[in-house]
Amino acid sequence: MSSTEQGTSSAAPAEPTTAPESAAAPEVPESFYYVHGKDKVVHKVSAGALQHSALIHGMISNLGYTEEQAKANPFPFENIDGDILQMVVDWCNQHKGKPTPPEDTNLPKQKEKLFDLVLAVNYLEIKELLTYCCKQVAMMVKGKSPEEIREIWMIPTDAEDEAAEKEAKKRAGKEAAGETAAAAGDAK
């Protein structure tokens, strides 16, 4: 994706712009693909940027779509929130064709979205971004006590785990009893 299109999101995909010509060698025109998340907002992304995602790269590598075909067939990621997909697309654009630095300052900063972002990145198989996100998750508990870690990572206490287990057993027992009663009723 060219710089003018970075972060472009619209219900109708924008027309691709022409990549700047190099004086040294004729450039191969860049191909673009389209993705959308749960919100159906379509993002136009270059094949180069999408190479970060092993999942999408695998999908597009043998397609040989024309621009029109690609536009007509955006990849649907219904399990990813639109704003999360936007973050991922932004990151892929920023790191297109570049080696990712050891300390990435372009990481998405919204901590409240981190959980969903990690799941999305994991699903899309973006290895480097996943490592960064997991590192950020790990960094959340640096220097914290177990009580604080429990709070940050929403880890139930042993008592809460035991209560939940009891509750689950109780529910399962009730359900089993209900099924037995229903089966007996059917038999009558």
Partner: peptide, 15 residues
């Protein structure tokens, strides 16, 4: 703790 909580144990095992 002022951090935004994140439900770590709901992560898939590989994560």
């Amino acid at each position: 703790v002022f951090q935004m909580p994140i439900a770590l144990l709901k992560f898939p095992n590989d994560l």
